[in-house]
Simulated assay, not measured.
Amino acid sequence: MPTSRTSVPVPRERGAGSGAQRRQEIVAAAQRLIADKGFEGLRVREVADRVGINIATLHYHFPSKEALVTAVVQDIVGRLDRVPAGDVQPPPPREHLAGHLHHVLDQFERHREQFVVLNELYNRAIRDEALRRVLQASDTAWTDYLVPILRAGRDNGQLRADLDPVAAATLITGFFKSLLFHLGLTPQGARQAADELLRGLDSQETPR
């Protein structure tokens, strides 16, 4: 007769909060570790040490390193919120697009470390298929968000009549990914570049 198994409870560390709070603490520690040491320096045991938990608790929340990295990416991308909370109806497409660009730039200025983390992950993804899948899913979600806005702006005459929404979405996401490669770029310079990008999408009838 098979021996019955009893579940072993995960040890609860002193001062432990809710599950969601603990997960966020783990994700934040992983982000800081990647920013400090790069992806190669991401060790789940060191993440656990930084949070003040044991490795069993970390694995309870994130069974694998890939699951933890996925949560890191989702947390950073989640800060690039699509539509401000409380908006019942999105603004007109051109205004919506401009608001999104400036919101992402706000996040870049306030949380530059997180963009450093994303940059590190994208560089690593060239050689890491599992990480590439995680980032491709994020890229697809961002493109899927932008394309309807761009298409609506083209169709209502605010953006160029010959605009290719998918190509334009690729241009926008590529612009943000490139920011960290421009050493010495000031926040004002980044905003001017974003405004120039937006003007390149405008129809000739759109006031500038």
Rank of each mutant, 00 (worst) to 15 (best):
G38E: 00
F39D: 06
F39N: 07
F39G: 02
F39R: 08
E40R: 03
E40M: 01
G41T: 04
L42R: 06
L42T: 02
V44D: 07
V47Q: 02
D49M: 03
D49E: 14
V51E: 04
I53G: 04
I53K: 07
A56S: 15
T57S: 15
L58G: 11
L58S: 05
Y60N: 15
H61C: 10
H61K: 11
F62H: 12
F62Q: 00
P63C: 08
P63T: 08
K65H: 07
K65E: 13
E66N: 11
A67H: 07
A67S: 14
A67R: 14
V69F: 04
T70Y: 02
A71D: 11
V72P: 03
V73I: 13
Q74R: 13
D75N: 08
R79P: 03
R79E: 13
L80S: 13
D81F: 04
D81Y: 09
G86C: 13
G86T: 10
Q89E: 14
Q89K: 09
P90E: 12
P90T: 11
P92I: 00
P93S: 08
P93L: 10
H102G: 02
H102V: 03
H103L: 12
V104S: 12
V104N: 13
V104Y: 05
L105Y: 11
D106S: 14
F108R: 03
E109K: 01
R110N: 08
R110F: 06
H111G: 05
R112N: 07
E113N: 01
E113M: 09
E113W: 02
Q114P: 01
F115G: 01
V116L: 09
V117G: 09
V117N: 08
V117I: 11
L118Y: 00
N119C: 03
E120C: 05
